[in-house]
Design a protein around this nucleic acid. Structure first.
Lengths: 200, 200
DNA sequence: TCTTGGTTTGACCAGTTGGTCAAATCAACG
DNA sequence: CGTTGATTTGACCAACTGGTCAAACCAAGA
């Protein structure tokens, strides 16, 4: 049913979402204008509103698409795998996400900075449930002595913080590093950091 | 000269700055309105504009005040002190800054997220200079074998990322942690993390 | 070709925005 | 008290905001 979209509809809807991602991720919801998004999408404002009923609708569509991809890497943490490799793998996957989808990262950052008005219930619901679940796995590993004894929630926070920093604070990171590319050094550092932290 | 300020001027200017901090840190520059700031300051909009010539001026004043306090903790890193204690101390000081001045942290985050249009030159100038300076000190410690051999720039990034995460992503952190207070656990985790990382 | 339904747009609207200004109010000092 | 300069405000403005709508345009099948 939902699949009944013209080629034009597909092209324009995805152009709008891409433009919305570009604009919202930079200025936040209230700081972005429909004219800006329309121009970035190569459409007139009324034409944009022919595909999405409102500014809010574009933003919501983006957030929904984002959350799917955002929670996936943590979900993939495997309780039967090698503990240190599982956590290291998760961190590297998250870093790659920042490298390859920095605008999505900044869209998320903007939403959280503004108090997460649109996704607060998801944070307290799905996200908390999943994090608590994975934290329990990590705690289990710690009790078995497979990894060092650390607080699993703050471990996860540290991974989020460090990896997202390279997308959200990109301009600062590049200003400080000068010409050096950020992500190679970051991946190496990440590896060292968590290997040393987690080795019992 | 600049000190010739009435009691009223002092009170209102600081009320405006506080209100501006509150509003700008939540909605970013473009997402904030003068009416919002004026109301938060308990003034009428024309009255606010009697003390600051424009919205931009309020924002600039806030950023300037912020940058002073923001760069101070890193500046305090002492090359003659005990390496691990110096770095640990810096990290803890930065975490305390997030705890005690979360709005300032979010104001900064908003500015960087939007591409740092107003402070880009400072990032490439003063900030980069100071970070390179401190990075050299840390590299020196590493060469002497006093701390483990890690990339000093990414070490500093990781401290920024982790500590600011608790202010900037406050709503997410609290959603995940539920009732537990964030900062106690964070301080303990921070201590463990960098002690393990830096011990040679 | 004509028709039909999806697509695009110019003109428009009411509400909001940053900012101005002259007039009114207030505080304090002689 | 009266005066003077700082302070406050209501009324106002042009530009911009999200959103509407009828009319025009266009692609494609009959």
């Amino acid at each position: 049913m939902t699949k009944t979209l013209t080629r034009i509809q597909q092209r324009n809807r995805s152009a709008i979402l891409d433009a919305g991602l570009e604009v919202f991720s930079q200025y936040g919801f209230r700081g972005s204008t429909l004219d800006q998004i329309a121009e970035a999408a190569g459409l007139s404002k009324p034409n944009l509103l022919y595909y999405f009923p409102s500014k809010e609708a574009v933003h919501t569509a983006l957030l929904e698409r984002l959350l799917e991809n955002w929670l996936a890497p943590l979900q993939a943490l495997d309780p039967t795998g090698d503990p240190i490799q599982e956590i290291l793998g998760y961190a590297q996957r998250k870093l790659a996400l920042s490298r390859d989808y920095p605008r999505e990262s900044r869209l998320f950052a903007n939403e959280i900075l503004q108090g997460a008005p649109r996704i607060h219930n998801i944070l307290r619901g799905d996200l908390k449930t999943m994090v608590d679940d994975k934290a329990a796995i990590i705690s289990g590993w710690a009790e078995e002595g497979q990894i060092a004894d650390i607080d699993p929630h703050h471990l996860i926070f540290s991974i989020w913080a460090f990896t997202q920093h390279y997308a959200d604070f990109d301009v600062q990171v590049r200003a400080v590093l000068g010409d050096k590319p950020p992500y190679d050094g970051a991946a190496v550092f990440l590896e060292t950091l968590y290997e040393k932290l987690l080795t019992p």
